[in-house]
Design a protein around this nucleic acid. Sequence first.
DNA 1: GGCTTGGAATAGCTTC
DNA 2: GAAGCTATTCCAAGCC
Lengths: 98, 98, 98, 98
Amino acid sequence: MSEIGHNSEAFGESPDVINQDAQGRLRSFVARLETLDDQKDDILSDAKEVYAELKGEGFDPKAIRKLISLRKKDRAKVIEAKTILELYASALGCLDLV
Amino acid sequence: MSEIGHNSEAFGESPDVINQDAQGRLRSFVARLETLDDQKDDILSDAKEVYAELKGEGFDPKAIRKLISLRKKDRAKVIEAKTILELYASALGCLDLV
Amino acid sequence: MSEIGHNSEAFGESPDVINQDAQGRLRSFVARLETLDDQKDDILSDAKEVYAELKGEGFDPKAIRKLISLRKKDRAKVIEAKTILELYASALGCLDLV
Amino acid sequence: MSEIGHNSEAFGESPDVINQDAQGRLRSFVARLETLDDQKDDILSDAKEVYAELKGEGFDPKAIRKLISLRKKDRAKVIEAKTILELYASALGCLDLV
DNA sequence: GGCTTGGAATAGCTTC
DNA sequence: GAAGCTATTCCAAGCC
C-alpha cells in the first residue's frame, strides 16, 4: 500500500503526487454523487408524503402506485404480458384463474 | 365496504364511478407524483453523467458505486448500532439485566 | 416474434393455443415448482414452531430474527471483504500500485 | 454488560449461571433456525434453476411465477371454503354429511 | 386488521 | 446481445 498524503520530494511526476491529485478528484466526484443521492432521497421522501396524504383522503396507495407504473410503461408490453399469462393458464386448464 | 368517491346513494348508477371532486383530487395527486418521478429521473441521469465523466478520467465506476454505497450504509449503521446491544441482551432473554 | 408452443403456422387457429408438447413441459415445470414451494412452506412452518417454542422459554423472537439476519449478512460480508481493498485501490485509479 | 461465560461461585441461582444456561439454549435455537434457513435457501436455489431451465426452453418466467401465485391463492381459498363448510356442518351437528 | 419491517423478484445499467 | 450485478419495487410475514 502506498502512503496517501505523503508528498514526496517536490517531483511533479512521482506516484504520490499523482495519487494526491487523484484523491482530490475522487473526493470531488464522490461529493457530487452524494449530493445527487441526497436530492434523490429528498424526492423519495416527498413522494412518500404524498402517498401518506392521499391515503389519508381515502385513496388506495397501492392502486395509485400501480396506475403510475402503468402510465409509465409501454401499453403494448402490458397487453403482451397479459396475453402470455392467459396462454399458459389455458394450457394448464385454469383460465378461470386469470 | 365503503368506497371513496362512490356516489351511488339511492341512484342506480354503476359502482365504478368516482365523483367529480375525488376525480379532481386524484388527478392532482397523480400529477404531483409524476412530477416528482420526473425529477428523480433527472437526478439519476445527472449521476449517470458524473459516472461517465469519472470513468473518462480513469476511475472505476463500479468501485465508486460500491464506495458510496458503503459510506451510506456506514452512516445508517451508526444510527442503529446503539440498538444492537439491547438486541443481543434481549436475544439472551436477559434484557432486564442491561 | 417467435412464440414457443405457438402452432399457428398457416392455420387460422387462435394465437392463444399451445401445442401438446409445450403444454406437457409446462405442466411438468409447474409441478416441479409447486413441489418445491410446498417444501419451502413446510420449512417455514417448522421455523415458526421453533420461534413459538423459544418465545415460550422467554426469548424475544424479534431479537433472534435480527440476530440470525445479522449473522447471515456477516458471513456474506466476510466473503466479499477480500475484494474491497482492491476495490478501493481501483476507485483511486491506482490498481496497478497494489 | 454482564460477563457471559463467567461461572460465578457455584451458586445455582446466580445470574451468570442463568445466563450460561440461556446462552446454551439460545445457541441451540439459533442452530436449528439456521439449519432450516439453509434448507430454505437450497430450495430457493433449486427453484431458480428450474426457472432458468424453463426460460431456456422459451417460456416466460415472469408469467409462470404469476400463474403459480394465482394457483396458490386459489387453493388457499378452496381450503378455506371447505373449512367453513365443515364449521357450519359441525355447528349443525351434521359433520358426517360433509 | 393495518402497519411496518424484511426478503424476494424485477428492472436497468454495465460489461464482456 | 447476453449475462451479472446493483438498486428499486413489490409482497408477505410478523407485530401491535
